[in-house]
């Protein structure tokens, strides 16, 4: 479990707190999406889960983050990273090798994965992310989207108990984005991996995530199942979160009819709702 208690963080030299009194519990096996406008503190929160904050990034840190009972402030980043894998927002700067294969190997080698297991993990990661054909390519010959997939694969290969991804589809086209989210879902369901993903594409989050946390100005202002969070369209719009059209549709409908209409999380549900009301 990830247990974030009254976490307040201010970057060194910053005028304002990036996180303000954030309390959030993420149970084992959850698939949580984090959404919010630019500068809301999503990245800061994501970095706090794996202990990058406070170990690597300095600032005023109040409160506590516990991962599987380990307090991130009291445990070394190396020990935490066996438990939590983090895909950073900036693709380029987290690549440490010059060849795809070496990039996937890096973490596997460091964490001492047995030699006879490495090949299988490599095939799995490359295959699942859909870049098996890129194995021997140099990083410099890849497109931005391909590099992003390599970065994701390098963490998938490690199979951490908790996987944190900060905007993992920022450079990807719609179909690759869906592919990554399908992969996250299967890691979540088949391996029981806890997935925490910061994502701007709310449609994807609503389709794949089970829970949503909405951030604004350093706070977690909504936290619940996707359906619960989408129940308050007006509130979300006020924060600056673009809602899926389907949810907008059901909320408008409910306003017009003057009675409760179930939230439509995706287009299929919207069609279903329309059909039921029209009769």
């Amino acid at each position: 479990m990830i247990d974030i208690r009254s976490l307040t963080f201010r970057y060194d030299g910053a005028e304002e707190d990036a996180l303000r009194d954030v309390t959030l519990e993420i149970p084992d096996g959850a698939f949580l999406g984090i959404i919010g406008p630019a500068g809301a503190g999503k990245t800061t929160l994501a970095l706090s889960v794996g202990g990058i904050i406070p170990h690597e990034i300095r600032g005023d840190f109040y409160g506590a983050v516990k991962v599987d009972g380990l307090d991130t402030a009291d445990n070394k980043l190396t020990d935490l990273s066996r438990l939590v894998g983090t895909v950073f927002q900036d693709v380029e700067s987290q690549i440490v090798s010059s060849v795809v294969e070496d990039e996937i190997l890096y973490g596997l080698e460091n964490f001492g994965i047995p030699r006879d297991e490495i090949e299988e993990r490599m095939d799995f990661a490359l295959g699942q992310v859909g870049i098996a054909g890129l194995r021997h390519r140099t990083i410099s010959s890849l497109s931005g989207g391909q590099r992003q997939k390599v970065v994701i694969a390098s963490l998938v290969a490690l199979r951490p108990k908790i996987l944190v991804l900060d905007e993992p589809t920022g450079e990807l086209d719609p179909s690759s984005s869906r592919q990554i989210f399908s992969l996250l879902r299967s890691l979540n369901r088949e391996y029981g991996m806890t997935v925490v993903v910061v994502e701007q594409k709310i449609m994807l989050l609503c389709e794949f995530a089970e829970r949503l946390a909405v951030m604004s100005e350093g706070r977690v202002v909504r936290d619940g199942t996707v359906r619960e969070v989408l129940g308050d369209i007006a509130g979300l719009e006020a924060i600056g979160v673009n809602c899926p059209r389907s949810a907008l549709f059901s909320s408008l409908l409910s306003e017009k009819l003057g009675r409760e209409v179930p939230v439509a999380v995706n287009a299929d549900e919207a069609v279903e709702t329309a059909r039921r009301i029209i009769g």
Partner: peptide, 16 residues
């Protein structure tokens, strides 16, 4: 960026 690379490496077991 180099600092960020070092951080990312540490988060993937650099010290081990």
């Amino acid at each position: 960026r180099t600092g960020a690379t070092a951080t990312a490496a540490k988060a993937r077991g650099f010290e081990l």
